[in-house]
């Protein structure tokens, strides 16, 4: 059970995590993609996606989690998400208004509908997911590496 030999938690936790983490991720993606149809959306989806990463980190230790998404990767993803969201908003300006929904809206209750809203949702999910993951990492890792700046 020593931490040096085997980072992460016990075998039971690891097995369960291996089984569930994909489902959690899938649920997050579902919430994200159906955000314009049912309750959910970018923020909720992003949080759940981040939780799946946090889950991996708790069960297997930080190295395994960083294989999936490194800190610099998370930061980049955060920036990209924010810029994508801003780009959608500013592109609307080219069509006449900030945040204008300039894509054809399609049918209600279809997956591919609602114009720019799914794109904005994906952007928010990138930002929120990566952001929450980096907050978690910053709060957990900070104790071990006191010299590193946030």
């Amino acid at each position: 059970m020593s931490r040096e030999r085997d980072p992460g938690m016990s075998l039971i936790v690891k097995t369960i995590t291996r089984l569930t983490v994909g489902l959690i991720l899938l649920f997050g993606i579902y919430l994200l993609l159906h955000g314009h149809l049912t309750p959910g959306g970018g923020f909720a989806g992003g949080v759940i996606i981040a939780l799946s990463l946090v889950h991996v980190m708790l069960a297997f230790g930080k190295d395994k989690a960083f294989e999936v998404l490194s800190v610099s990767g998370a930061k980049a993803l955060e920036g990209i998400g924010a810029l994508l969201f801003l780009a959608v908003a500013l592109l609307g300006l080219a069509w006449g208004a900030f945040f204008l929904n300039f894509v054809p809206k399609g049918e209600v209750f279809e997956l591919f509908s609602a114009g720019t809203i799914p794109v904005s949702n994906i952007a928010i999910a990138c930002k929120v997911g990566a952001g929450l993951f980096s907050i978690f990492v910053a709060l957990v890792i900070m104790k071990h590496e006191p010299t590193e700046k946030e």
């Binding site: 920036g79 924010a82 810029l83």
Partner: peptide
């Protein structure tokens, strides 16, 4: 929008 873009591009 301009300062926000500046902030995220910077990041």
């Amino acid at each position: 929008g301009v300062p926000l873009a500046g902030a995220f591009l910077n990041a």
